[in-house]
Structure formats: structure tokens, C-alpha cells
Design a protein around this nucleic acid. Structure first.
Length: 462
RNA sequence: GGCCCCGUCGUCUAGCGGUAAGGAUCCAUGGUUUUCAUCCAUGUUACAGGAGUUCAAUUCUCCUCGGGGUCACCA
């Protein structure tokens, strides 16, 4: 059984980079009918883990990703970690170190000054004497002194670390007894039955340490996949400073979950030339072996394109529901279909679409000065008057084609081009020169509102 | 600085010894549209550099350069 996990430290919300590794983990588990677990790494007690977990689950829910089983909180697993620390101590695989923080940082500084690598020299590794008074010891793992550790990574290949280069007897439990990151990760991944560790490649250099723990405890080593970072435009690791990294901010900005997931799955991963992936297709086709080795730069141009693609392909009743978050209650609007059909081709985001809807359904209060002057020149007002009369007199006015026929009649009778009526009418109806087809607009707002808007512009400009 | 990872159009990527280096996005131009957008068509732009190996390197090896990550009693 394939078991993956997403193990964020609680920073308060789910960000884009985290979401992508979560997505990869989720897809790989689902593809194999395995499990996708969620673990909150909240060993830092100062932070509020409750909120963070909620934010993450909310975001997952919005996106349609569901984790399996209960959420694991590291903060609630102290006894478990304590048990393994005791075991390692008893087996002589770990030991108490009485060096104080001050001593340690002093050592580090001298090493840095001498351009040596910073390293704990194992002062208490084989200590048997009487421990110094008044110092609570930290617990260190007895790491192997020489040889090498090979991280067999599904993306990077085999990465070799020499013990002498990177390893020392690192601390697995602090003086206050609380366990440290690299220790608990190894314990939890093992205990949770995680078989595939998919995470950011900033963790690659942690992996040998975790392997040391695995080996000390006799655990099976999982498969690792270290996915490259997402960088900002400056080429640096994406961080909170880089604007919209909160996943839920994308909901407010009017992005659809399908678009965001599609965008993220294609960032660093590909399947030939395919660009559009439904969640089902992702589940079927995703394979971490096709993840790129290099970091990718976060650039939302493609997200916009995907978003407009998904907006165009979303049924109107669903769009109407999605637009409710912008205060638009369209579900029972009688011209909903015409309205949404006319606007879904023109919006990059739902938010933008909402404002386009408002532009159509609201009587204009502002007229683009330059455009109005140009469009209302000559006999434009007279043409509008004639058209208005036809609208008032028409017996049956419902569909865009009904209005189109009236426009056509004016054009034919007055022997003018379509633009002669189109331009002034556009100003009257929308107050500016751009926008959806006029026949659609009139069908949506109806006869009375059409007449009102024409009268308004005539009043204002005669 | 030590260690590790990475390097194909601006961006996301395909490529897996022999290709006119493909797609997408962006941008530009043209067509469609009474306008704008959509849509369609066309176009500009890339193998970081240098040595090898080979009949043949974007592809394999090494070096250089460039970028990134990581080195805590943080996670």
C-alpha cells in the first residue's frame, strides 16, 4: 500500500508551494488507492496549531483534496518520542551531552573563524565520568563516524553524502526533553506507515540525518522524492513576502480550484504536451518520475489563461453559484443563460466576471467622454430616437435576435451602416465603447431598461 | 565558506546520440466581430561557456561560470 503524507509546520495558512507538494502526494496516493495522511508539525509550542490545521483543511476542502484518517499532531505525541529516546539511550545508541548552549556556540564560532565546517566533536560521546553540576543534558544520537549515506531519490537519483562532510552527533532531544525535528519526522513517518516521502528539496540535506535515525531504530527506509522549489521572479525560494501565497486568497481573487490545481500540477511536472488536466486525469497520469529536476519560477500568466479556460467550460448554473461570493444572486434571473454565456468568454477571473455582470445590469451613471462625443456626433441622437420608438412599439421582445431585428430595420430603412446605430447605442446602454453584443445586453436588461438608458443618453447629450 | 542540487525560447515545459530543437503561455501581426473580449491563422525568441568521448552531441564525461538549497537545543 502506498502511503504519502503532507507534513506542514503550522504557519497559519496553506501556501502555494506547500499545496503543490501536497497535491503531488495526494495524487500519488490516490493513483495507487493508497492513503494520503496529514500531520501537523507543531513541536514548537508557541504557535497555535489548531488554527493552522483548520486553515489547511479548509483549503484542501475548497480544492477538493481530502486527506485520510485523523490528523496527527506532533505536539500530542511526546510519550511516543520519549519511549524511543529511552530505547536509544538504553541501547547505547544515544547519549547525554552536557555542553551548554554557550559552549556550543563558542565552538561554532571558532570553527567558522578557522573556515572549518561547523561540527560537534563528540565531546561526551564516550563520556563515563561524573557529569558537570547544574547542567541539564541534551540527548545526542551516536551517528556513524565514517562511510557514506546514499539517499535514493525518485527525482534526483542517488545522492551521496559522506559522513565526515555532513554528519555529527546531532541532538535528538533538547535539555527540556522535547524531541527535535529530524528525530520526530523519522519516527512519525515510520509509525504512520508512510512509504513515499514527497517533500520540497530544501529537505534533501536533512534526509541523511533521518536515515541515521531509521537505521538506529531498525526501521525500513521509505522512498524519497525531493521536489524542486518554486522560486519567485528574483529566483529565490518563494516566501510569504512574495504576495499572494495564501491559497485561499486565490478563491477571493476569483480563481477556480480546477485552474489552480491544473496550474500547480504543471509547475515542475508534465505529461508530454498536455496542458489541461482534470483532477481525474491527474490522478491517472501523475508520476513523480516525470517531475523536473530544476526549480521553476512562479509566474501567474498561465494561471490566468487556465482560469479563463475553466470559466468558459463551466456550466452556467455552477458559475451562478460561484458568483454568489461577490454578492450576485443570479440563480433565478430569467436571462441568466444569455447573461453568463455573453460574459464567460470575457473574464479571466470570477471576480472580473462579477464586475462585468454589474456593468451590464446597472444603469450607466458615467459616460466615457471621448467615446461619447465621437459616437453621438451627427444624427446619432435621431437614430437612437427612431430605434427607441421601435423598441416601444414592438410586440414581442425577448431574445437577442428580437432586438437584432429592430436594429437591422433601422439600418435598412435609413440606409446606414451598422456602426451608425451600434456606436451610439453602445454608449447609451453601457456608457463606453467596449462590452458584449448589444442584442444580448438588451435581451438581458429588457425593454423598459433599454428605453430608459436610451432616454438618459438623449437627455444628457441634447 | 563546507556539503548538496540545478542550468532548453521571457515564463511553464517536450526531448532521452543523428530533429527544420516540438507544445503551451506571453508578446506582435492578420482574419472574424458594429466595439472590446473570445476564436482562428501567422510570426519573433532557447540548448550558459569550454574541453573531451564519438562518424555524429542539446542529449554521455570533466572543468568553468551562473543560480538555488542547507549547515541550530527552528521546522
Amino acid at each position: 500500500m502506498v502511503v504519502t503524507r503532507f507534513a506542514p509546520s503550522p504557519t497559519g495558512y496553506l501556501h502555494i508551494g506547500g499545496l503543490r507538494t501536497a497535491l503531488f502526494s495526494y495524487l500519488w496516493a490516490r493513483k495507487h488507492n493508497g492513503k494520503f495522511l496529514l500531520r501537523i508539525e507543531d513541536t514548537d509550542k508557541a504557535r497555535n496549531s489548531k488554527q493552522a490545521a483548520e486553515a489547511i483543511v479548509n483549503a484542501f476542502h475548497w480544492l477538493g483534496l481530502e486527506h485520510d484518517g485523523e490528523i496527527t499532531y506532533q505536539s500530542k505525541r511526546d510519550e511516543i518520542y520519549a519511549k524511543y529516546i529511552k530505547q536509544l539511550l538504553d541501547e547505547g545508541k544515544a547519549y547525554r551531552c552536557y555542553m551548554s548552549k554557550e559552549e556550543l556556540s563558542e565552538l561554532r564560532e571558532t570553527q567558522m573563524a578557522n573556515k572549518q565546517r561547523t561540527k560537534y566533536e563528540g565531546k561526551y560521546r564516550d563520556f563515563t565520568g561524573t557529569p558537570p553540576e547544574g547542567i541539564e543534558p541534551a540527548i545526542r544520537i551516536k551517528a556513524p563516524l565514517n562511510g557514506e549515506i546514499i539517499v535514493r531519490d525518485g527525482i534526483k537519483g542517488n545522492v551521496v553524502f559522506k559522513h565526515e562532510d555532513i554528519l555529527d552527533d546531532f541532538i535528538i532531544a533538547r535539555a527540556d526533553g522535547s524531541p527535535t525535528y529530524n528525530f520526530v519526522v523519522a519516527i512519525d513517518d515510520h509509525l504512520m506507515g508512510v512509504t513515499e516521502v514527497i517533500r520540497g528539496d530544501d529537505h534533501l540535506s536533512n534526509t541523511p540525518k533521518q536515515i541515521v535515525i531509521y537505521e538506529a531504530l531498525g526501521f525500513d527506509i521509505p522512498n524519497f522524492y525531493h521536489v524542486p522549489m518554486i522560486h519567485n521572479a528574483e529566483g529565490k525560494k518563494l516566501s510569504k513576502r512574495d504576495g499572494a501565497t495564501d491559497v485561499m486568497a486565490y478563491k477571493e481573487m476569483g480563481y477556480m480550484p480546477e485552474a489552480l490545481l491544473n496550474f500547480l500540477v504543471r509547475l515542475g511536472w508534465s505529461h508530454g504536451d498536455q496542458e489541461i488536466f482534470s483532477l481525474d486525469e491527474m490522478r491517472e497520469l501523475f508520476d513523480p518520475k516525470n517531475i523536473n529536476k530544476s526549480a521553476s519560477i512562479y509566474n501567474t500568466e498561465k494561471l490566468d489563461w487556465l482560469n479563463s479556460h475553466y470559466i468558459k467550460n463551466t456550466p452556467n448554473n455552477e458559475l451562478a453559484k460561484l458568483l454568489e461570493q461577490y454578492g450576485l444572486l443570479l440563480t433565478s434571473h430569467d436571462k441568466k443563460e444569455i447573461l453568463l454565456d455573453a460574459l464567460k468568454e470575457r473574464a479571466k477571473t470570477l471576480k472580473e466576471m462579477a464586475s462585468l455582470v454589474y456593468e451590464v445590469i446597472s444603469t450607466p451613471t458615467y459616460y466615457d467622454q471621448a467615446a461619447a462625443e465621437k459616437a453621438l456626433k451627427g444624427d446619432a441622437l435621431e437614430i437612437l430616437n427612431i430605434f427607441k420608438a421601435k423598441v416601444s412599439a414592438a410586440s414581442e421582445l425577448h431574445l437577442p435576435s428580437d432586438y437584432h431585428h429592430l436594429m437591422q430595420e433601422v439600418v435598412d430603412e435609413m440606409k446606414i451602416g451598422f456602426g451608425k446605430i451600434g456606436q451610439p447605442l453602445r454608449i447609451a446602454l453601457l456608457g463606453k465603447m467596449s462590452g458584449p453584443g448589444l442584442d444580448n445586453v438588451m435581451a438581458i436588461i429588457g425593454r423598459d431598461e433599454t428605453i430608459l438608458r436610451i432616454e438618459n443618453v438623449i437627455l444628457k447629450h441634447s
